[in-house]
Structures are given as C-alpha cells and as structure tokens.
Nucleic acid binder design. Structure first.
Lengths: 344, 344
DNA sequence: CTGAAAGCGCTAACAG
DNA sequence: CTGTTAGCGCTTTCAG
C-alpha cells in the first residue's frame, strides 16, 4: 500500500494517491505554495505525515538544477588549520541550509584537479583550500569549477574570489618582535616546499632581511607537523640562532618538545615562535608566541563569497586579505649572550 | 553548439549528436559497456573528450538510486576525536569511491534527528557519531536511517552495527596505574553530562571502587575542553586528591596548564591522566599519561561496516568493541606524602 | 550491436 | 485552484 515506488521508499506519488490528488498538488503543498485550497492542503499534509513522507532530494536536485550542497577540497584533513576552515565553512553554510561535502586530497597534488572536478559536479559551488597544484593547472581548471572560492591561493583566472592570509606580514611581525628582544641570529624552520603559504613567509623574510641587514637569518628545511619540529632540534642548535621562527604552531611545539628533552631552556636559551594560534598554543609549556590567524572567520567568509557567486549577486569586494595578529606569550624572551655553533 | 541543455552545461545529448549516435550508446560507452562497436566507442570517447563531457552525478543518482555518498553526523566538529573519526572515515570511503557529507549538530541534541534524516536522504548510508539524543529517540529513528552505523552509542533497534570504545575499561586501567604508583586519593574530572562515553567511564569507576574500597575517589563536574580543565584547578586542589583522572586529553592539558600556573608540580605533587591519546598528548610538558583509543581505525571500520550494509553483504561480526591501550608517559608518577584538603 | 522509449522523483509551465 | 504534461540527465529494458 504505502510503498509502491521502485526504490521501495515512499515517494510523492504515494502521498498523491493517499490524499486523492495529483503529485503536482503534493509538490505545491510541500513547497509551501499557497495557491492550494486549505482543505486539500491539510489532507495532503496529513497523508504526508501518516506516510512519513520526505521528499527525495535527488529528484528535487535534478528538477531544480541545484543540490544545496557545497564542496571543499583540502590537502590534508589532519591539519588543524584546514579543520578550522572546514568548521567555519560548515557552520556558516548550515545557517543558509547548505551542506558540505568534503574531499581530502591527502597531499597528492596530482589528484587534486580530478577530485575538485568530481566534487564540483555534485555541488553548487566549491571551496579550494590551499591547493598544491601548479599555478598553470589552477588557472586552467578554475573556470570549469565556477562558482569557486580560493583560500590561501590566488589565480589569474577571472571571477574567482580569493581569501588569503598575509603570512608575509605575520612572519615579519614575529621577526621584528624577536629583534626587539635583542636577538640578532634568527632561523626560519620552513614548511612544505610546495606550500604557497610557505612562499609568502619566505617573501616576508626577504623584506625583513632587507630592512635588517645586520640580522643573520638561517633557512632550515622543514615541514608542517610536530615531527618536523621535533626532528629539527639538531639543525636548530647547529645554526647558532637564538630566535626560531617555526613554520607553524605544530612545528614550534615539536621543536619546544625536542629542546626540552635536550635541556635547552625556552625562552631562556632560545626563543621560539609559531604561526596560526591554534587552540593548543595557549596551553603549551611555555605558552607559545605566535601570529594569530582568524581562521574560523575565514571559513565563514568563504561561504559568504561562495553564496554571493551562487546567487549571482553583484559583489563589490570579492576576496580579502587577512592580517595575522601578533600574540606574544611566554616562548619568546630577551636574547642571551650570543651562542656559538656547536656542530657534531 | 556544444551547450544546448537547459542547465547550460554539457550533457549526454550533446555528446550523442556530436558522435552521431543515441544517448543510450553514449551512456554505454561512458560506463564501460563492451557491447559497443569499438569504432563507435572510439568516436563517442573522442566527442566526450572534445566537449569535456563529464556525466552529471545527479541524473546518474536518480537513475541508479544511489549517490556514492555517505553522511556523518557529529556533535561537534571542533572535537579532535570526531575530527579523527571523520578523517578515517573519509579516507576509507574515498578508497571505494565514496564521498562524505558532514553534518555538525553543534551539540544541539534537539536538531540531531532532523539533521540525521536530511543527511541520510542525500546519501547511501549514515554514520551517527556519539549522538546526544535520548535512547528512546535514537531507537525510534534508527530504522528509518538504515543503512546506519553507530559510533560510541548502542541501540536496541535491529541491524544497526555499533562501534564502541570501552571507556569503562580504559578508565579502570588508568586508575589501577595510579594506585600502583601509591596514590590513594583520586579524583575524576567528569565530561559533559549527556555524553554516553562519560557514562561508561563512570560505570568503570564504580567497578574500580568496588575493587578498591580503600581508595578515595572524588567526583568533580567538568566538560570536554581545555577551559574545563583549566577552570577546575581550584576544585582539584580542594579535593586533596593526588591522582587526577581527566575526562580526556584536552581537559588534562588544561588542568596541567592551570596547575603549572599555580606552581603545582606534575607529577611531583599531583599526577594527571588524560584519555584518547590525541596527537598532542606526547608533546605536552610533561608528556601525558593517557589511554590510547585507535580512533582513525574506528573511522575506517565504520566505513567497512557501512559498506557491508550498503552492499547488503552478510555480515557475521557487526559492530565491535575497542579496547584502549594504557600509554604511560611523564604526567603520572609516585604518590607523595598524603596531602590534606585545603578548602577556602 | 544500437536506437527508441520508459522511468528514477521531483518541479513548473500550461491548460482547464 | 488543480490536473496534465513535459522536462531535469542519466541508465536500462526491449525491440530490432
């Protein structure tokens, strides 16, 4: 009786026969179309409730040409930064009745374009988060992904809002902070080579070096996680630097942990700074000096940009630039007497 | 020429006319049906490539009655535990060509059921993560959500696999560990009142108390985040306990941070244990003794259970129970001379 | 081996 | 105000 449709689930047709009307009328009632006679509407609603009818979103999507779903592509869901963006995005989108489909590329940049395309086709719009693909590839696929919002990446392709954090400014602020504390030998523990945000940090450091030729800045290879920082203790000590700019908070925490194991006092012997101000940063020992990125807000803003694109709204200020805020805590302090390199 | 369909995007019909065949044939070729003449198939493929044709998944979903998407409902996407489950689930599902739709209930338990229903209708199956709704409600809606997999929650409804972590055993192991170090006054910093996993911990502690009547176990109200731990310093000190079982690692870290600010030495004065073994736990100062939950594996297993349900496979061992593993680090140590309560 | 046609569940013109 | 009809884009019988 109730379940007659092929899928075995209750469809609009079941409600229609039960209420003794056409499915068009049922559709009207379900969509709040008030051109329906109140009595009939009530009968339809009663039938719907009785059958526990819920419209099938797939049929609806096909008819309307929209899915009420957006996609987000991230390079690594394990990264707190992307988690925070996802959360902000999800929350903001949910308020407008949109769901979020996630696609994790697991840092495999060769799969990113295909992944993005697939995700896009299932959704009404896409957020591409710090894609690792080349500029050329990004520019090539960007138009086919529209509506598209980019985070921490820009492209020459037209009509693509881009939300970027000014990592270059942030790292300069941190470096200035250390110099203000008397440090003259700094080291930068870099992030992943392909990372655009690492590139922005490097540019910022170049500007800093131009302004402070007397300060020695050593570049050290790195990565983006705890283990990177923990494993960098030797090279950090060998550099002779007293102020260490870690790629991000995770790296900084790993480094502090490694230094602690060696009996090196932070900030007594060495000052350490992070980047991002993840929630954990204020609970490390010592608490971490870092540059705070309003990351959840970024996710929310990404949704607003995307929403404007989906609604084809006119859009005066597409994209935006986010300034990190210096967050001075206990992991940075006055420079000690200069140390000498201790190789081997 | 190319784009003639109503949506403005290239559809199967465009490829069909370009290749001079019917859309049925295009469909066959796109789906790797080998009953198509090789020459025609080649022509179709060439047309598809030239037009950059990508099948519309919505139309496909409607025809096939499946979306190749699963949903996950979590109470709070900010919680590292749920993030890890999401990651494990997403990774495992992706390997089988499935995408993940997320639904964050933001701890609003009244919205959970509706959210779950909506998510389910867009997907081929659902993972409900530690739902906060009542047992009665869960049991009522569970059948309508099938295929459904439950995490850290069980239900009497039939055919619902349930993956649960044995928090009761874990907390007992931690308590035994502390007692083995000579602690006789313990305190449990509880989690959110509605949390099922908190209930399991409480049951475990009851069993522990029955076994160790000489040990004093104080119950303290709490929560599940840093601030809970940080704010609990006073009540912890007032309890006079020397061994503190925190609800989870986050709470433990907040507590350690607060104790450090008061000059209380961990583990010299007070031993602290967490729960979960989140990645940060091995990098705190001191490193955190905790009970490790194989959480990413849980996400992967959730997918396998769900996949079996979706494929209607016979399924000998639905669900499973995960035993936490004691991870002894530096935040727990021998008990000092007994302290006295220092109220006020 | 291929095309015509039906149908997945829904919405929206268009008649009446 | 309501029913009929025609799609949305795709898969899949069913003839040929």
């Amino acid at each position: 009786m109730a379940r007659k449709s092929a899928t075995g689930r209750i469809g609009i047709a079941d409600v229609a026969v039960k209420a003794g009307v056409s499915h068009a009328t049922v559709s009207r009632v379900m969509n709040g179309n008030f051109t329906v006679d109140p009595d009939i509407a009530a009968r339809v609603r009663a039938a719907a409730v009785e059958l526990k009818y819920q419209p099938n979103p797939v049929g609806r999507s096909l008819a309307l040409g929209k899915t009420d779903t957006i996609g987000i592509v991230v390079p690594d869901l394990a990264n707190p930064t992307f988690q925070a963006i996802l959360r902000g995005l999800s929350r903001a989108a949910a308020e407008d009745g949109y769901r979020v489909l996630i696609a994790d590329s697991f840092e495999v940049s060769s799969e990113e374009a295909i992944l993005a395309g697939e995700a896009r086709r299932r959704c009404d719009g896409l957020v591409l988060c710090a894609p690792r693909m080349s500029d050329a590839e990004l520019e090539e696929i960007a138009p086919s992904l529209h509506p598209l919002v980019l985070i921490n990446r820009t492209t020459a392709a037209a009509g693509i809002p881009s939300l970027v954090v000014d990592y270059g400014q942030g790292v300069q602020d941190l470096a200035e902070h250390l110099v203000g504390l008397g440090h003259t030998r700094l080291a930068f523990l870099a992030g992943p080579a392909g990372s655009a945000s690492n590139g922005l940090r490097l540019e910022g450091l170049e500007a800093f070096k131009a302004r402070h030729p007397q300060v020695d800045v050593t570049m050290l290879d790195g990565g983006s996680d705890f283990d990177t920082g923990h494993g960098a203790v030797d090279s950090v000590l060998a550099s002779g630097a007293t102020g260490i700019l870690a790629f991000n908070d995770l790296v900084a925490m790993g480094l502090m942990s490694g230094l602690h194991e060696r009996g090196v006092d932070v900030p007594g012997d060495i000052s350490v700074t992070g980047f991002d101000d993840i929630p954990f940063a204020r609970y490390t020992t010592p608490t971490l000096t870092t540059a705070a990125v309003p990351i959840a807000e970024l996710g929310g803003q990404a949704w607003r940009e995307l929403r404007a694109l989906i609604r084809k709204e006119d859009h005066d200020a597409p994209g935006g630039r986010y300034q990190p805020r210096l967050e001075i805590r206990a992991s940075s302090g006055p420079a000690k007497a200069p140390r000498t390199a201790t190789h081997g």
